[in-house]
Amino acid sequence: MIEIEHLTKRYGAHTAVSDLSFQVEQGQIYGFLGPNGAGKSTTMNIMTGCLSATEGHVRIEGHDIFDEPDKAKRLMGYLPEQPPLYLNETPEEYLRFVGEAKGLRGDALARQMDGIIEQTGIGAMAHRRISTLSKGYKQRVGVAQALLGSPKVIILDEPTVGLDPIQIIEIRDLIKELGRTHTVIFSSHILSEVQAICDQIIMIAKGKLAAFDTPENLERRLLAPNELVLTAETDEEALAGLLAGMEFISAAQMERTGEGRLTAHIRTDRTDIYEASRAVFFAFAQRGIPLLELTPKKANLEDIFLELADDGDAQPETAPDAGHDTESGVEEE
C-alpha cells in the first residue's frame, strides 16, 4: 500500500529523518509514535507531498509521491498537526473547496459532503464560521477535509493534541471507525492512545525507525524487567531476612513508606513473573507477615519510549543500518 524506502531529510547539518524504511499494509490502523522532534511530522509531510525528501522514495500503491504527485495524493487524505482551516469560512464552504480541489463536482461532491459531515458529526456546525468552533470541532472539520475524495489512506498528525478528555475520546472513536474502511496512520506521543487503538505501532526516535510491531508483541518483548513491587507490614530486619531466604531473588531494594510499612522492589531471575509472586506470597503467609501489596511490574510502552529516546541520543547519527538493526523490535534489557 505505502512503501517508504531509505527516506532521509536533512536541514543543513541537521538530520530530521535518517534512512527510514517501512511498509504499510491496507486496512489497518498504524500508530506513529515518537517523542517530540523525532521526525514524525517531517515524515508525514514528506509522505503527503508537503515536503521534499533529501533522499529516498515514498510510493503509494506504486505511485511515487515526487514523480506522480497527482495520482499519489488522490489516494491520501492528510490532516497536518495544525488543521489547515480557513477560519472565516463555514465548514460547508471549506469542504466544498477541498472537494472541488480534489476533483469532485456536482452531485458526487454533495453526496460525499453529506456523508462525511454526518460521519464526523459536524452537521450542527456546518453553517457556522470555523473561527467560532471549539477546538474539537475544528479538528473534526480537519478530519472531514482529509476524508473527501474517498482516499484509501488517512494520515493524521497528532489529531488529539490540545483537546479535552471528552473530545479526545470522540476523536479516538472516530479514528477507530475510520479504521474499518480505511488505512489510517496517525501520529501521537501519547502511548496509551496508540496502545488502545492501533493494530501496528511504528516507533521512531531521532529520525530512525526504532520499532515496528503490534502493541501486544512490543509489550511482550518488553515485559521482562522481572520486577516485583511489594509492600508489607514489618520491619527492615524481618523483611531482609525473609527476602534473603528466597533463592530466586537476585536483587532487592527497600524503603520505608509509612508507619511500620516497607516497600521493596525486587528483581527475580525466574522467567515467569507470576510464579515468583506466588512463591513470595506463600513465604510471607508462612511467616504471618501481612502483605499489603504485591505487583508484578510490567514494562509498558512508556519504558520503551524513554529508552528509545535515550538510545537515540547515544547512537551516532551516521550508523547506516541502525534503522534495520532494531527493526524487528527493541532489545530486551
Binding site: N45, P69, P84
Partner: peptide, 11 residues
C-alpha cells in the same frame, strides 16, 4: 494560517 499545507497536500 498554515493552510498552505492543505494546498501542498491537495492533488
Amino acid at each position: 494560517q498554515r493552510t498552505d499545507q492543505l494546498l501542498y497536500s491537495l492533488p
